[in-house]
Each structure stands twice: as structure tokens, then as C-alpha cells.
Design a protein around this nucleic acid. Structure first.
Length: 473
RNA sequence: GGAGGGUUAGCCAAGCGGUAAGGCAGAAGUUUGCAAAACUUCCAUGCACCGGUUCAAAUCCGGUACCCUCCUCCA
């Protein structure tokens, strides 16, 4: 099956055909580094990673670019409030962002261009647009005249008359400085609130508008015309619409073939957002003891174009689900080492069939839920075929799980051996040792008393055929 | 007001015309000194509602209800 994606530009499912055979250029809208990203933001990045990994699974060499927005109203405001240079606001959050990406097993982009490192490119682009007659000046700032781009509004199916009317009640009626309310700024003339944040340009001292950075940086690293551009639904308008206008008016070429937008993460039926205050950061959740893998599982468990209602209950369910696959991988690893000889055809064939279902699901517009279903079906049906768990077949089964892991990246297929008892605090280790002795002499009331004692210290003890195992309660 | 999306078991969720995947929770059983874990089995005559098309509809068409997003901070 070939890959197909839902293209926001055409509102249709389309077979994916890359511009250059075997290669895919992917631009993923990155963060504004004025604060920690919340997991609603990370849904978009995990979605983009799912796309990235799926493209790789299907043999594409992916060139991924993700921007870091390190100059805008919010970052400048934070710098002013804290009375520190802009970079001292943005760099720590940029570093935190990369740490969070790594924790969520999001593959690294080839480049993470910063807006502040690409101001000359943006200025050149604005100059080109000005020469082509798309730009006008007002009160020291430069604006893009959307009337000069007939295709404006394709992404959101916008009626141009509505724009003219300024249909949104949110538009302040005193914004006269623009010819039309939906014209957007390319270059913001310096104002005192900007403080030291300013660049010299042929249009005077100032700073770039938000939208121009993505046009300048994406075309710099991926070319004037590239394959895929992703982001959250709320970036369709105005951000991506404006990117298209700027880029196409500047280069005269089609900008991006396929636009893919992921839907929002909800909390209590409402969009998770900074402004609403109903958000969790990755750090919050890790601090509560949830694993990054469970978070990743939850984020990919719903199709990217559907709303995902985030709950801690759902997160706990994800943690339990992935633990079962991990245990299954353990069993298979045992069989791969100690199993019988022979082809084990039933298990080998089953793995091939489920892998096909897995790949077909992903190819169909990134249906991760269907693909995850294939993995669980495989686990159950493999156990029904235990007779065929030969060394060879178990290796084939593990190979399928590794393929699944190459896209989902939420399992632990080779978990470390249970920590030795010596690794526990002394008091805990002593209780464990005493309980072990009590159990050896079948003094179960003493054993249960020691279990309660451990519970009082915050540990749950479980008896397995291999001995006692401790877990944090 | 305009544009777009949604409604499938207690919760999450796939399904894209051929008779309801999967996960969590729950129930019973195997195992266990007892638990836990693991494993096995069970768990929607039904897909918001009302019509229509069809041999066949959760899937297509028309309508109704409710929910959500966007319409220049937003991933």
C-alpha cells in the first residue's frame, strides 16, 4: 500500500508523491520559546514525529526542519518584565524544549533554525516582495497586501469579502494603520517597548513579523518548493495562510505540496492552552510519576485529526497497555534464546500478516490506532500459537515488534533486569531479606507483617517465581 | 454571522457499503499460603436521533439535536 495523507489545502486524501524520488522535505512548525511547552503542544510534535517515522518506515529519507521562534511579542514581553536580555529568556526554554523532545523519543530534526539567526534572509525576502509590489508601509512598519495574492484563503476556504468586512468581533476597530484588517505585518518598526531587540534593515530599525520567519527558513533549508508542512489546526489561519502568500509571491513557485494539520488536545472538553490555564507540562506529568512512554502512547492513540481528550485516567491506561507489550517482548526474547529449533511457520506467518495490517493502517493517513490494534492482536494470536515459538519464529516476531517500535517508540522491548535488592535503601533491603527468610520457612503471618511494613515505607512487594519484586506505591 | 470537525460499550478508540479491531475498567476461571502480576474466557442484535437510497448502511444521501475548533496570542 502506498502512503496517503489528508491534505488541508485540497481537503482530500491524496497519495503521497515526493518531489524527489525517495526523499521527503518536511517542515514542522516549532515552539515559541517563552515558556515550557505543554503536552497540547507536544501532541503536535509527537504527531509530526509519527509522520516522520512513518515516512522512514516507507523508505523515505526525510529532511526535517523545525523552527525555533525566539523573537516575538511574548518573548520580548518576558524579557522586559524580567529585565534581562531576550536571549536569556529564550535559550533556557529552547534547551528545555530539546530535553522534552528527547524524553518523548521524538527523532531529531536535521536543523532547528532560530528566527534570530535568520533576520538577513527575512529582510531579503521582504525586499523581493516589495519589489514585486506586495508590500506597503504604514507608520514605520511594512505590511503584506493580501489583495495582491489572488489565492489567499485557500487553506481555510476563506471568502475574501468576509476578510474585508473583518467578520471577527475580536478585531479591534481602531486598527486603521492597515489598509485591510487581514493584511499582516512583515517588518515591525522599532517601538520603545522593544528595548534592545532590534535589527537594522533597508526599511529602518525594527524586527521581523512572526510569519516571515517560517517562509524564510523553510525555503532556505528545504528549497522554494517542498513536500510537507505540518502544524496545529490553529496555525492554518493566519500563520500558514500568510506563509503561503509570502513564499509564493516571493518565489513565484508552489510553496508546499501537502499541508497536514493536527487537531487539538482537550481537557474537560476544552482546548488545552496557556491562555486558558488548563495545561500540563511534560515536567508536571513526569513529576507525578507517569512515564514519557505512556504520554507518547496516549498522544498517538487517537487519530491526529480528531480531538483528543486528555485525562490522567487515560494516561494510566496507556501505561498499563504498553507494559503488556513489554512483557510480551520479554517472553519472545526468552524464546529466541532458549526456544526449540525449527521454522515455527504459524508464528512467522502471523507476524507477517499483522505487520501488513500495521503498515497498511499507517499508510492510510497515519491511522496509528489501527496499527496499534494490529500489535495487540498479534500478541494474543501469537500466544494461541505457543507451539510454534521456535528460536527462528521468535526472532521474526521480535522483528515485527521492532518495526512497530520504530514508529510508536513507546515500548521498551529490552527492559533492564529487575533491580537487585541491594539497590534499595538499607531499611527496605533488610525487610526484604527478613521476609525472604520468613517465606522460606513458610511463616506467612510474619511474611505478611513484613509486607505491611514495606507498604508503610511506600513499597509494594510482589512475589514472583523469581523472587520478590518491589514497586513504588 | 461565516468556515470546518465531531457524536461507536462504564472510559478511550478503529472502522470509509458486506453484517462491530484494539486498549483500560469489570466478571468468571487457571496460578498463588494469601495477594499482586501473568495467562484463559466473557463483556455493543448495537454505532446521537428521524427519514431515504441499497439485496446489504456505523459507513452513502437529506434533515434534527448536542458538542468542539477557527475567523489575526495559540500546536
Amino acid at each position: 500500500m502506498t502512503l496517503q495523507f489528508y491534505n488541508s489545502l485540497t481537503r482530500n486524501l491524496e497519495p503521497f508523491q515526493s518531489i524527489r524520488p525517495g526523499k521527503a522535505g518536511l517542515y514542522s512548525c516549532g515552539p515559541t520559546v517563552y515558556d515550557y511547552a505543554h503536552i497540547g503542544n507536544f501532541r503536535a510534535y509527537v504527531f509530526s514525529d509519527l509522520l516522520h517515522r512513518t515516512l522512514r518506515l516507507f523508505g523515505y529519507e526525510v529532511q526535517l526542519v523545525m523552527n525555533i521562534t525566539d523573537v516575538d511579542d511574548k518573548t520580548i514581553r518576558a524579557a522586559r518584565q524580567r529585565q534581562i536580555p531576550l536571549g536569556e529568556v529564550t535559550r533556557p526554554f529552547e534547551a528545555a524544549f530539546h530535553e522534552d523532545l528527547a524524553k518523548l523519543h521524538i527523532l531529531k530534526a536535521g536543523t532547528y533554525p532560530r528566527a534570530t539567526d535568520h533576520v538577513p534572509e527575512m529582510i531579503r525576502m521582504i525586499e523581493k516582495l516589495r519589489e514585486a509590489g506586495h508590500v506597503y508601509e504604514s507608520e514605520g512598519s511594512l505590511y503584506f497586501r493580501i489583495e495582491s495574492f489572488p489565492d489567499y484563503g485557500r487553506l481555510i476556504n476563506l471568502q475574501r469579502e468576509e476578510l474585508r468586512a473583518g467578520a471577527s468581533k475580536r478585531v479591534a476597530s481602531d486598527e486603521y494603520e492597515k489598509e485591510q484588517v487581514s493584511d499582516f505585518v512583515l517588518w515591525k518598526g522599532w517601538v520603545p517597548e522593544d528595548g534592545a531587540v532590534a535589527w537594522d534593515s533597508p526599511f529602518g530599525k525594527g524586527r521581523p513579523g512572526w510569519h516571515i520567519e517560517c517562509s524564510a527558513m523553510s525555503t532556505k533549508y528545504l528549497g522554494d518548493h517542498f513536500d510537507l508542512h505540518t502544524g496545529g489546526m490553529d496555525n492554518k489561519f493566519p500563520h500558514h495562510e500568510n506563509e503561503i502568500a509570502q513564499s509564493e509571491c516571493c518565489t513565484g513557485k508552489t510553496f508546499v505540496n501537502t499541508w497536514i494539520h493536527c487537531s487539538h488536545l482537550m481537557v474537560d472538553g476544552k482546548k488545552m492552552s496557556k491562555s486558558a490555564g488548563n495545561f500540563y507540562t511534560l515536567r508536571d506529568l513526569l513529576g507525578k510519576g507517569y512515564s514519557a512512554e505512556a504520554i507518547r502512547h496516549l498522544l498517538i492513540s487517537t487519530h491526529y485529526r480528531n480531538f483528543l481528550n486528555f485525562t490522567l485516567e487515560g494516561l494510566a491506561a496507556s501505561g498499563k497497555a504498553i507494559a503488556k507489550i513489554n512483557a510480551f517482548a520479554q517472553e519472545l526474547t526468552q524464546a529466541a534464546q532458549n526456544g526449540a529449533e525449527g521454522p515455527g511457520a504459524p508464528l512467522v506467518d502471523l507476524a507477517a500478516a499483522k505487520e501488513k495490517r500495521f503498515r497498511d493502517s499507517l499508510a492510510d493517513d497515519l491511522n496509528a490506532s489501527g496499527a496499534m490494534g494490529a500489535v495487540f492482536e498479534f500478541m494474543h494470536e501469537a500466544r494461541e500459537r505457543r507451539d510454534s515459538w521456535t528460536k527462528t519464529a521468535a526472532k521474526a516476531a521480535l522483528a515485527f515488534l521492532e518495526t512497530a517500535q520504530s514508529v510508536f517508540a513507546c515500548f521498551d522491548l529490552a527492559p533492564a533486569a529487575t533491580a537487585p535488592e541491594a539497590a534499595y535503601p538499607e531499611a527496605v533491603a533488610a525487610l526484604l531479606e527478613a521476609r525472604k527468610a520468613a517465606r522460606a520457612s513458610r511463616q506467612f503471618s510474619e511474611s505478611d507483617r513484613l509486607r505491611d511494613a514495606l507498604a508503610a515505607l511506600g513499597w509494594v512487594v510482589k512475589d514472583t517465581p523469581k523472587g520478590q519484586i518491589l514497586e513504588r506505591s
